[in-house]
């Protein structure tokens, strides 16, 4: 079934800004996709630096979705949504920039009120946060919040 931003918004109850294109099909992609300060990366691309430990707690993505990252300053969250039983995720990744890893057997969507939606083809993905350089801070970086 072709999913548009309007139908996804209706299905999930996540309101998106009305000036975003609502009626075009959301592209479903099996590659890298950026949504504001988040990046969805196929696990195979970064398989060398991301190792989900054997005992990591996996959870099924619930019907209301998972808020991967709530933006600062009362901003908007990035929410991962999937049909029941088709996607599981964990925050235990052993990767300092990663928020989590998800594995899906069907198309999943990452939704954000201002950025719209990104469709991810079935597969395994790492979701990373964006950072910037800050030489005065421990580790020399800080996370970006859009």
């Amino acid at each position: 079934m072709t999913m548009t931003l309007a139908s996804l918004s209706e299905q999930t109850g996540i309101a998106v800004l009305d000036h975003l294109e609502q009626s075009l099909a959301i592209p479903v992609i099996d590659g890298l996709q950026a949504q504001g300060d988040l990046l969805v990366i196929p696990l195979r691309v970064v398989a060398e630096s991301v190792r989900v430990p054997g005992g990591a707690p996996w959870r099924d993505v619930p019907p209301e979705g998972v808020e991967l990252l709530r933006a600062e300053a009362g901003g908007n969250p990035h929410t991962l949504v999937a049909d029941p039983g088709t996607c599981r995720w964990t925050r235990r990744t052993g990767d300092p920039l990663a928020i989590g890893v998800f594995e899906a057997t069907a198309v999943t969507y990452l939704v954000h009120p201002e950025h719209g939606a990104s469709g991810c083809a079935p597969g395994a993905y790492v979701v990373r946060r964006q950072r910037e350089h800050d030489r005065d801070r421990w580790g020399g970086t800080r996370f970006v919040c859009d």
């Binding site: 890298l32 996709q33 949504q35 504001g36 990366i41 970064v46 920039l97 939606a117 990373r128 950072r131």
Partner: peptide, 17 residues
Amino acid sequence: WTYGLSGDQYALLARRT
């Protein structure tokens, strides 16, 4: 670099919203 990737990896970016 802002996502911990090389330039070659980032060049694979298919879509940004």
